[in-house]
């Protein structure tokens, strides 16, 4: 009996048929491809996109500039007399061309002014387009749209919580 069973198994190739049926199942399954330019892809909650700077709350402390391993941030603080009343930087350059998206600057900032956004489309035809200044930083363009009022709920990535903060949150 066993021999007959084995013989039938040998000539009908159940493994091959099993394999073929698996591929057929996949033929009709829903496809996982995201057709990117037509449909915006799903961006994870903590994705690190282009950097945004909220110039209003920046205090020109230049900590982000020091923290950056790629030296792609350049902050120009206002003159000393002005620093007493208005600490907003005169000029703020971010060179996205060699930004690593490492978010060290984000962690260093004491006021939370610099943060990642969810914008990831950084393809340009000219490198100069990747050098953003105070005017061209995307957040400021938004501000311009809103007539320079403070905006809440800007679509930016939240700051990374440090282990210490996490401990406090769970308490």
């Amino acid at each position: 009996m066993e021999k007959i069973k084995n013989f039938i198994k040998m000539i009908t190739f159940p493994e091959l048929i099993k394999g073929l049926s698996v591929t057929t199942k996949y033929l009709f399954k829903k496809k996982v491809t995201e057709e990117y330019p037509d449909f915006k892809p799903h961006i994870p909650y903590r994705a690190k996109g282009k950097l945004h700077v909220q110039i209003d709350t920046c205090i020109s402390c230049r900590l982000c500039e020091k923290a950056c391993p790629e030296w792609c941030i350049k902050v120009f603080p206002p003159p000393k007399e002005q620093m007493k009343t208005d600490k907003r930087p005169q000029e703020f350059y971010i060179n996205q061309e060699h930004c690593l998206h490492c978010s060290l600057c984000v962690d260093a900032c004491p006021t939370g002014s610099i943060h990642h956004s969810y914008e990831f489309e950084l393809v340009v035809t000219n490198f100069k387009e990747l050098l953003f200044n105070k005017e061209t930083l995307p957040y400021n363009q938004l501000l311009k749209q809103y007539k320079w009022n403070y905006i809440e709920n800007v679509p930016v990535r939240p700051r990374t919580t440090t282990p210490l903060e996490q401990k406090e949150n769970t308490k």
């Binding site: 591929t23 996949y26 033929l27 399954k29 996982v32 491809t33 057709e35």
Partner: peptide
């Protein structure tokens, strides 16, 4: 295209 379909691609 069919190979794509078989592998859950387009």
């Amino acid at each position: 295209r069919l190979l794509g379909f078989f592998q859950s691609r387009l």
